[in-house]
Amino acid sequence: MAENKYLIFLGCAIPYRVSAYEISSRKVLQKLGVELVEMPEFNCCGLPLDPVSHEMMLILAARNLALAEQKGLNILTLCPGCAGTLKKVNKVLKEDKALREEINRHLKEAGLEFKGTADAKHIMQVLIEDVGLEKIKDTVVKPLTTLKVAEHNGCHILRPREFIGFDDPEDPKTLKTLIEATGATCLDYMDETECCGAPSVGVSDKIALQLARDKLNHIKMVDAQAMITICPFCHIMYDTNELRIEKMFNETYGIPILHYPQLLGLAMGLSPEELAIGELRVDASKILKQIAEGEK
């Protein structure tokens, strides 16, 4: 399979309400020579159905993988949930012949068959493994050297380790390395790998918001000027809810939450408009100003 050509897999959350992530990802991937192919036959990865029916999840994920196999291309996802699900199902079905046959009986109804010949990768994995750090650094024309940020990984691109096999879930380095490639400093902070709480929204908003607040607190403690995410759900959790948390707990954070491709795009010299930074709920003008002044 061609190394830098992928079927783009958007999932549900991104088209629903996180288009800034898609816009900025497409821009930076284009700059890096990654070709994205649209796939009108894709559907939900299956993850949201797993709590209700594991079998349904397996069928939906296998359907997407089988479609990619037909095209002879690997999948690039922006959402760690989609990447994690597709990776896990790919591994399980490749190894478990009986299960594969069972799932294929269902897929046959739609004229599809899972063979296990396509891979699914998250954008972060494509950047570090296929594009490579050197190429990324070469595109950085405006290093963000004055900026100090904190990273937040999405759980599903790291865990469960046995199925995902990417980076170290206890001490992940990829996102940090990618952030540092932009010239920005990536700060360490307490409980870095802690979940954002998004999956608990709708079941207990209170618990979900307390989790998000904890993270914002830890990031504030080290004086990070922004949080960098690579997951649409984590982003919604922090960006959309930051004001709500501030009100609820009578606290002030004022920490803008940027999608990693937005940060990289700024370092590539793309404008905030091109990267849809205006779509962020938490005002990022302070760091944009700082970046602009840094250039002078």
Binding site: D50, P51, C155, H156, R159, P160, R161, E162, P169, E170, T193, C195, G197, A198, P199, S200, V203, S204, I207, A208, L211
Partner: peptide, 12 residues
């Protein structure tokens, strides 16, 4: 039962 956030920390 429905509060689990599926972060898989326990599993790992």
């Amino acid at each position: 039962l429905w509060l689990c956030a599926s972060c898989f920390t326990c599993t790992d």
